[in-house]
């Protein structure tokens, strides 16, 4: 379109540039601060030219917060959660889209309602469940009188117990269920032409075969999008790992940030803190940059 709006264009450029500064300034400041020595980083104002202590600070932060194993934990958790979500939501959506059975709508609503039960509102009881994941089933057996019956019949006292605190399962399993992922797949499956299913059936494929040979390969884009945002989401989790990793061995990089907050009293070691922050920020930032397309697509698709 031919349009001469020089003033407006100038204003547009200025505002966008300010927006750009606003978006990147914290990254830049973190990077510069992590290159200074203790004195420079506490100077007012902090010098904006990078200092020379970058690698020393990175190394100190790495050892202070024990970031090697913690990053590995973060990675395991984020990968596990993302893979789990991608798989489990595909299975569920397949079930509710491609089959007709009584209670199908009910299952849909059961999953929908989980949207209204975010972790934040059920932290304490979820913690209790994870301390013994079988406790709900034990409770059901007790209340229905089944444990009493079993004990009477077999003489075995029923006591189900499986603790998941401080374990990868405990970190991952409670975060896997996903309504948004399920709806994303459902939405996608509904757009897959019926003729494709019919052709597969004429070719002799059953449900499982169709799911694996046709539906999953067709969902590749969805999987990439969902996988990307769920990986980021899981990597950035804070509250849940903070709760269930009572000992350090399973803590994640994000929860370790707390160890880097400078102590009150003494000169605050902001250079170390910022070096640690930089390390923790970097993996998700790389994912966002490398997977930008999937990230944006996944976000928009899952929120619909």
């Amino acid at each position: 379109m031919v349009e001469r709006t020089p003033i407006l264009n100038f204003v547009t450029h200025v505002i966008l540039f300010l927006g750009f500064l606003m978006a990147v300034a914290p990254f830049v400041i973190v990077a510069i601060a992590s290159s200074h020595n203790l004195k420079d980083v506490n100077d007012v104002p902090m010098p904006l030219l990078p200092g020379s202590d970058f690698w020393i600070n990175i190394k100190t932060a790495w050892t202070t917060a024990d970031l090697g194993p913690k990053l590995l934990n973060s990675f395991i958790m984020a990968t596990g959660v993302a893979a789990g979500k991608v798989i489990i939501s595909a299975l569920t959506a397949f079930s509710i889209v491609y089959f007709r059975y009584p209670g199908r709508t009910f299952i849909f609503w059961l999953i929908f309602v989980t949207l209204m039960l975010p972790l934040e509102v059920r932290i304490v009881p979820t913690y209790a469940v994870v301390a013994n994941v079988l406790s709900p089933y034990q409770a059901i057996l007790d209340v229905t009188g089944l444990s009493w019956l079993i004990e009477k019949v077999s003489g075995v006292q029923v006591s189900l117990s499986l603790g998941l605190l401080n374990s990868y399962s405990g970190l991952i399993l409670p975060l896997i269920a996903t309504a948004t992922g399920t709806f994303l797949y459902r939405q996608f499956f509904l757009t897959v032409p019926d003729e494709l299913t019919e052709a597969a059936r004429m070719d002799g494929a059953g449900a499982l075969r169709f799911f694996i040979d046709i539906l999953l390969p067709l969902s590749r884009n969805n999987m990439a999008a969902l996988g990307t945002i769920m990986f980021l989401w899981a990597w950035n989790q804070y509250l849940w790992p903070l709760l269930i990793t009572t000992d350090q061995s399973h803590a994640t990089a994000v929860t370790e940030l707390k160890q880097l907050i400078p102590n009150v009293g003494g000169i605050p070691e902001w250079n170390i803190a910022m070096a640690g922050t930089l390390i923790v920020m970097l993996p998700p930032l790389i994912v966002v940059v490398a997977m930008q397309r999937w990230f944006v697509r996944g976000l928009i698709a899952t929120e619909k």
Binding site: P193, E195, L196, A199
Partner: peptide, 20 residues
């Protein structure tokens, strides 16, 4: 009988080829 048990083959209007 299920489609696969009937021994019929079908050509669809939009071809329904597996895109991948």
């Amino acid at each position: 009988l299920e489609p696969r048990e009937r021994g019929c083959a079908m050509v669809f209007q939009n071809y329904a080829l597996y895109p991948h």
